[in-house]
Design a protein around this nucleic acid. Structure first.
Lengths: 256, 256
DNA sequence: ATGTCTTTGTGAACGCGTGCACAAAGATGG
DNA sequence: CCATCTTTGTGCACGCGTTCACAAAGACAT
């Protein structure tokens, strides 16, 4: 029973499967590159290769958006860029606040890919009074006290949390209370939010641990290629510089 | 056919499902917190709440590792911490190199969660000669020329790429050639690697776009509560500052 | 206009992951 | 030693996502 906050399965969103939504930005990026090279059309095979996915998967993904291709030819690059942009809601401007301007927060503020596609850093917020007024990435940092006002004034619905773990839930609560309904969390904590609020997590530590698991497995398998017990310690302590384990590249699944 | 590099489905790793592996770090974090509070045992229900997952899922996850619980009581915290650590390969030390010491790379270098669990920053590498020798997070930055030597000398098998998109593939190739078999990629590019090399991607831009999609959908649904076709362009230009769409929190899926 | 060739769009099969619901296991109290 | 109560471990069913394989659709040449 506890607090009663449990996760829900990831509701399919208006007909478009969640997995497809997660790939649309990938397609969009590849298409944008093609667009900049003035490539007029592209086949599912080519685009799939550029996006690093299966061509059948790509076609099925696009089929959820509608029939935007021409058989025997492929997809019109410009048209598809527009359609996906519209589907992702990138035709409008999304003001974003970043809370917690430490090393990471500052790095995010400076990240160019932000403004590139419909996102605009509306404000940088930090709890340290000493930070207030200091410009980071050309924007003056504001104090946490003004959080609610900033959200309201700018109509912010997307918040980025880059605070220490201890402060994350508290910041999250305030963001949500102020009207934010989508949160990107960089703090290593499980955030609890009411229904209707989306949380996505980015966690360096978890990613590394998953890599370590596979890394260990590769080493273990190679070491276990002898019949049973020919002291394998050999390479164990030395460099594990073997390559080509029997494993492809692995998707990174991150529950919020 | 193209280059022939296509993605593979994410092979189940030695019996333990990939989805389970991705959750183990989550459990481990929750367990570590309990351990620090000297909590001796914990039930699947409690631990699941702390990790933000379903208790049945948690029990099934643990069942892949073995029967480490006691019926009627729960799980021994310390014992479970050890077992999961061992399973993830965190009982050994993983030297890691970070390539690309810009804003993000520096932030990663300073990230405390790094050293906390088995990971050690062996070197910071940057292509800018002006950076060479400069200390970041207490470590002197080294030039890209020394990449291969560093990898070899330290037995590095995990590399973090925090370079601009344009340099990522090239850096990746060098890392792999030098013996790295696991890569955490922060650059917004699709990396192509040989079989046996794991790539996990962290992409701020993609995460934001996924959030934007759901955000738009929430707004659209609220606005679409009229019958059928009352010119919807209305809200498009204005700020979408409504809250509480009928949607729970959404998992973040990130194919490499 | 007709045939050929390319590429899309999708029906169907399969496999993985999730959640339910319950039997088995052990603790605990009398 | 037996009864009861708690909590684990798991068999089972269901749904989502992926992949295959092919028919339909259109371009293009003749």
């Amino acid at each position: 029973m506890a607090t009663g906050r449990t996760h829900r399965p990831a509701t399919r969103s208006r007909g478009i499967p969640e997995a497809t939504v997660a790939r649309l930005p990938l397609y969009l990026r590849a298409l944008t590159a093609l667009s900049e090279r003035s490539v007029p059309t592209v086949s599912s095979e080519e685009l799939a290769a550029a996006a690093g996915v299966n061509s059948a998967k790509l076609r099925k993904d696009f089929s959820y958006l509608g029939s935007y291709g021409t058989r025997g030819v492929g997809y019109d690059v410009e048209y598809l860029v527009y359609q996906i942009s519209r589907e992702l809601g990138l035709t409008q401007d999304w003001p974003v606040v970043i809370v917690g301007i430490g090393n990471l927060g500052a790095a995010l503020a400076n990240y160019g890919g932000f403004a590139s596609r419909g996102f605009r850093v509306a404000a940088l917020i930090d709890a340290d009074p000493a930070m207030a007024g200091k410009p980071v990435a050309g924007i003056a940092v504001q104090h946490t006290d003004e959080l609610e006002q900033i959200i309201a004034d700018n109509g912010v619905s997307i918040g980025v949390i880059a605070t220490p773990a201890g402060a994350a839930q508290q910041v999250c609560d305030r963001l949500v209370a102020a009207g934010v309904t989508s949160i990107l969390n960089f703090a290593p904590t499980v955030l609890t939010v009411p229904d209707g609020v989306d949380v996505r997590k980015v966690d360096l530590s978890i990613e590394l641990q998953i890599l370590a698991f596979h890394e260990q497995r590769k080493a273990g398998e190679d070491a276990a290629h002898d019949g049973g017990r020919t002291a394998p310690a050999v390479r164990a302590a030395t460099v594990a510089a073997d390559r080509k384990g029997p494993d492809g590249d692995v998707p990174a699944v991150m529950p919020a």
